Amino acid sequence: ATNIVGKVKWYNSTKNAGFIEQDNGGKDVFVHKSAVDAAGLHSLEEGQDVIFDLEEKQGKAYAVNLRIK
């Protein structure tokens, strides 16, 4: 899926990971530091509006192509 709108639920820069809550009510999506880095960002803030694509690896959904809304 592409161009999904959501809000950062939480992001821990020590653990280099967090979750994004989908505005469409879907399951929360894992976001890794690699996606944050690829977006040219240093970190994510709780409640921040984002747009992202979903990629599945080994049955788990990940946020990729992250951008700030």
Rank of each mutant, 00 (worst) to 15 (best):
A1E: 10
A1R: 14
A1G: 11
A1W: 11
A1C: 12
A1T: 13
A1D: 09
A1Y: 12
A1M: 13
T2D: 06
T2F: 13
T2W: 11
T2A: 10
T2P: 05
T2H: 12
N3K: 06
N3M: 06
N3F: 05
N3Y: 05
N3P: 04
N3T: 06
N3W: 05
N3Q: 07
I4V: 12
I4S: 05
I4H: 07
I4F: 07
I4L: 15
V5N: 13
V5F: 13
V5E: 12
G6A: 02
G6S: 01
G6M: 01
G6K: 01
G6W: 01
G6N: 01
K7M: 05
K7R: 13
K7Q: 05
K7T: 08
K7G: 01
K7I: 07
K7D: 00
V8R: 00
V8Y: 02
V8N: 01
V8L: 04
K9P: 00
K9W: 02
K9Q: 03
K9D: 01
K9M: 04
K9N: 02
K9R: 10
K9E: 00
W10E: 04
W10H: 05
W10C: 10
W10K: 04
W10I: 04
W10S: 06
W10D: 02
W10T: 05
Y11G: 02
Y11V: 10
Y11E: 02
Y11W: 13
N12S: 14
N12P: 02
N12F: 06
N12H: 08
N12E: 07
N12V: 06
N12Y: 06
S13V: 13
S13H: 13
S13W: 10
S13F: 10
T14R: 14
T14S: 13
T14V: 12
T14I: 12
T14L: 13
T14Y: 13
K15Q: 10
K15A: 11
K15H: 10
K15F: 13
K15S: 09
K15N: 08
K15P: 02
K15I: 14
N16K: 15
N16D: 07
N16P: 03
N16R: 15
N16M: 13
N16V: 04
A17H: 15
A17W: 15
A17L: 14
A17N: 09
A17M: 15
A17E: 10
G18R: 01
G18I: 04
G18S: 01
G18T: 02
G18Y: 07
G18E: 00
F19C: 11
F19I: 12
F19M: 12
F19V: 12
F19K: 07
I20N: 00
I20P: 00
I20T: 00
I20L: 10
I20Q: 01
I20K: 00
I20C: 01
E21H: 11
E21F: 09
E21N: 08
E21R: 14
E21L: 12
E21A: 14
Q22W: 12
Q22S: 09
Q22H: 08
Q22F: 11
Q22Y: 15
Q22D: 05
Q22L: 14
D23Q: 15
D23S: 15
D23P: 15
D23V: 15
D23W: 12
D23Y: 15
N24M: 10
N24W: 09
N24S: 10
N24G: 12
N24I: 08
N24Y: 08
N24K: 10
N24R: 10
N24E: 08
N24L: 09
G25V: 06
G25H: 08
G25Y: 07
G25Q: 06
G25K: 07
G25A: 06
G26P: 05
G26F: 08
G26A: 09
G26Y: 08
G26K: 11
G26W: 07
K27L: 10
K27N: 10
K27I: 09
K27P: 15
K27E: 10
K27T: 09
K27C: 10
K27H: 10
D28T: 08
D28A: 08
D28V: 10
D28M: 12
D28Q: 09
D28G: 09
D28C: 11
V29D: 00
V29A: 04
V29L: 03
F30V: 05
F30Q: 05
F30I: 06
F30G: 02
V31G: 01
V31M: 04
V31D: 00
V31R: 00
V31K: 00
V31N: 00
V31E: 00
H32W: 05
H32R: 06
H32V: 07
H32F: 07
H32E: 09
H32M: 09
H32C: 11
H32Y: 07
K33R: 11
K33S: 09
K33E: 04
K33A: 10
K33I: 07
K33D: 02
K33W: 10
S34H: 09
S34P: 04
S34N: 10
S34F: 10
S34V: 08
S34K: 10
A35V: 08
A35P: 01
A35H: 05
A35L: 03
A35K: 03
A35S: 09
V36P: 01
V36R: 02
V36T: 03
V36G: 01
D37R: 14
D37H: 14
D37E: 14
A38F: 07
A38Q: 10
A38E: 08
A38K: 11
A39Q: 03
A39S: 11
A39T: 05
A39V: 06
A39C: 03
A39Y: 02
A39H: 02
A39G: 05
G40P: 02
G40F: 06
G40L: 06
G40H: 07
G40M: 07
G40A: 05
G40R: 07
L41G: 03
L41H: 06
L41C: 06
L41A: 06
H42F: 11
H42M: 12
H42L: 12
H42Y: 12
H42W: 11
H42S: 13
H42R: 12
S43D: 11
S43F: 13
S43N: 12
S43C: 13
L44C: 02
L44V: 03
L44S: 01
L44R: 00
L44W: 02
L44E: 01
L44Q: 00
L44A: 01
L44H: 01
L44T: 00
E45P: 07
E45G: 08
E45R: 13
E45Q: 13
E45Y: 15
E46A: 15
E46H: 14
E46P: 15
E46C: 13
E46L: 12
E46Y: 12
G47L: 03
G47C: 08
G47M: 04
G47Y: 04
G47S: 05
Q48S: 08
Q48H: 05
Q48L: 10
D49G: 14
D49P: 14
D49W: 15
D49Q: 15
D49N: 13
D49Y: 15
V50C: 03
V50G: 00
V50I: 13
V50R: 00
V50Q: 00
I51N: 03
I51H: 03
I51P: 00
I51F: 07
I51Q: 05
I51C: 08
I51K: 04
F52S: 00
F52E: 00
F52P: 00
F52Q: 00
F52A: 01
F52W: 01
F52Y: 06
D53I: 03
D53R: 02
D53A: 03
D53V: 03
D53Q: 04
D53S: 04
D53T: 04
D53G: 02
D53H: 03
L54V: 12
L54T: 05
L54F: 05
L54G: 01
L54M: 11
L54W: 05
L54Y: 06
L54Q: 04
L54I: 15
E55L: 13
E55A: 12
E55S: 09
E55V: 14
E56W: 15
E56V: 15
E56Y: 15
E56M: 14
E56T: 13
E56A: 08
K57V: 11
K57R: 13
K57F: 13
K57H: 11
Q58C: 14
Q58P: 06
Q58G: 14
Q58W: 14
Q58K: 12
Q58S: 13
Q58L: 12
G59P: 01
G59L: 04
G59W: 03
G59M: 05
G59S: 05
G59D: 08
G59A: 04
G59H: 05
G59K: 06
K60L: 10
K60D: 06
K60N: 08
K60H: 09
K60R: 13
K60C: 12
K60F: 11
K60Q: 09
K60A: 07
A61I: 15
A61V: 15
A61K: 14
A61S: 14
A61D: 08
A61Y: 14
A61H: 13
Y62N: 07
Y62V: 08
Y62C: 10
Y62H: 10
Y62G: 04
Y62S: 09
A63I: 05
A63Q: 01
A63W: 01
A63Y: 01
A63P: 03
A63F: 01
A63C: 04
A63K: 01
A63M: 02
A63N: 02
V64W: 05
V64P: 02
V64C: 05
V64H: 05
V64N: 04
N65C: 05
N65W: 02
N65P: 00
N65D: 02
N65G: 03
N65V: 02
N65I: 02
N65F: 03
N65S: 03
L66T: 01
L66C: 02
L66E: 01
L66P: 01
L66I: 13
L66S: 00
L66R: 00
R67N: 04
R67E: 04
R67V: 07
R67C: 04
R67Q: 09
R67T: 05
I68V: 13
I68D: 05
I68A: 07
I68G: 04
I68Y: 06
K69H: 12
K69S: 11
K69F: 13
K69M: 13
K69Q: 12
K69T: 12
K69P: 12
K69C: 12
